[in-house]
Every structure is written in structure tokens, then in C-alpha cells.
């Protein structure tokens, strides 16, 4: 989808925020670490997967996306997905959050040393996007010139706007990987994946860039031969 998340080449965001968090802690607040754990719990328990999570973040309104801190947006997405998976009820969650905020309710504590290793095993599977032995021969090989299809799906895609319509060269074949555009919407299928290099001038116009090349992974359905 053509959302606010797809920012490559946009102007006027101005200066970078300060270099924080630092090596001492990757979190600004401890609850951000809790959100990281909730996210891993969602992936590891199979409540949702990575492409669905990304799509959920992308559906936030642009104003909310830009004005809300990173982990707070993650929390909003994780809540919705656990609700969608039937694990939590949004109304109950709201009630409980308000009670905790007001100091009227304690956080439930329970120890189970088996939990994390089991969750991490599930997380590992989610991140493993390569599917060996699926799909036939890749259509392109190293050195082929390819043009990115000019498609503007209103659903999830990992083909950013700035490469669409541009011609690049296949730098490497990466094997067959789960296709995010289908997977985000419940259909797991794998497609050949390529690393494609574009001349920066092809992407932006020679006068508008000071870079030389850009490499990006593109799935076969994004590409046409030139």
C-alpha cells in the first residue's frame, strides 16, 4: 500500500533525532522492553506473523504514524493482532489498562522458565523466509536487466514506491522466499527473490542524487524483463 511508512526519497523530514538509546540500554523506558517481549510472544505463539504485523502498522493513519513514538505504535499493532487472533478482548484490555494506570490493579506475575525457549523457537520459524525445494526455475539470472512493475496495490507490499517503473540489474539470486504481498493476507507462498542494483540516477534523476547505486531485494512478481 502507498502509506506513510514508505518514505524512501521523501523530503523535508529535516534533522535526525539524537543518537539514543545508546549502548547502555536500547530502551528509553522499561515498558518499551515489555512491548518487545509482547511482539516476540505474538510471533512465537503464532498469534500473528511478521508480514501481518507490518501490514497492521501500515494501516495506522498517517497522522498517528508520524506523531506516535515507535514502541507505542508497535503496542497498538500488537494489541489489535492479539484481539484479532481471539487471545484478548479489546474491551477487557482497555478496562484492565485503565485499572493498572489508576493503581487499582496489579500486574499478573507467574514464572515459567520453559516459556521463552519455546517462544523463541516459534520466532525463529517466522523469520526463516526461505523455502527450499519450492517453485521451479527462477526467471532471471545475474546480470539480467529488469524493470520494476508499476503497481500500486492498496494492500501490503514490500516493493517501495521509489523503485517502481525503474530499470536495474540483477546482482544476485537469493533463493525462493515467502512472498510478503500474499502472506500478509493469509496466503503463504514462496517466490524467487533477487538482489537488484539500480544506478542512483535511474531512480532519482542525475541532478537529484549524490549516491552511486542502490541495492534492494525484489520478488519475481515485482519484475519484468527488459
Amino acid at each position: 500500500m502507498d502509506g506513510i511508512h514508505d518514505v524512501g526519497g521523501m523530503d523535508s523530514f529535516r534533522r535526525l533525532p539524537p543518537d539514543q538509546p545508546d549502548d547502555a540500554s536500547p530502551f528509553h523506558h522499561e515498558w518499551e522492553g515489555v512491548v518487545q517481549a509482547l511482539y516476540l510472544a505474538g510471533l512465537g505463539s503464532g498469534a500473528f506473523h511478521l508480514d501481518r504485523f507490518r501490514y497492521e502498522l501500515e494501516t495506522h493513519e498517517p497522522e498517528y504514524h508520524l506523531e506516535t513514538p515507535y514502541y507505542e505504535r508497535w503496542l497498538t499493532a500488537v494489541e489489535s493482532l492479539f484481539d484479532e487472533a481471539g487471545v484478548v478482548d479489546r474491551e477487557e484490555l482497555l478496562e484492565r489498562a485503565r485499572a493498572i494506570e489508576a493503581g487499582e490493579r496489579e500486574v499478573t506475575e507467574e514464572t515459567d522458565p520453559e516459556r521463552l525457549p519455546e517462544l523463541l523457537e516459534g520466532v525463529r520459524e517466522v523469520y526463516m523466509s526461505e523455502r527450499e525445494g519450492e517453485v521451479g526455475k527462477p526467471a532471471f539470472s545475474e546480470g539480467d536487466r529488469v524493470r520494476v512493475r508499476k503497481e500500486h496495490p492498496s494492500s501490503h507490499t514490500r516493493c517501495p514506491r521509489y523503485v517502481r517503473g525503474c530499470v536495474g540489474e540483477v546482482a544476485s539470486y537469493r533463493g525462493v522466499h515467502v512472498f510478503p504481498d500474499a502472506n500478509a493476507h493469509g496466503e503463504e507462498r514462496a517466490e524467487p527473490l533477487y538482489n537488484v542494483r539500480f544506478d542512483s540516477g535511474e531512480l532519482w534523476g542525475e541532478a537529484n542524487t549524490d549516491g552511486d547505486g542502490l541495492h534492494i531485494e525484489l520478488w519475481e512478481p515485482y519484475l519484468d524483463s527488459v
Binding site: 510472544a41 494489541e79 492479539f82 489498562a97 485503565r98 506475575e109
Partner: peptide, 13 residues
């Protein structure tokens, strides 16, 4: 957000 994170944590626990 801290209360929300702890609320969801509680339910998942």
C-alpha cells in the same frame, strides 16, 4: 502506554 503494555502482559501471562 506503560499501563497498556502491562495489561496485555498480564492477560498473556
Amino acid at each position: 502506554p506503560e499501563a497498556r503494555a502491562r495489561a496485555l502482559q498480564s492477560v498473556l501471562v
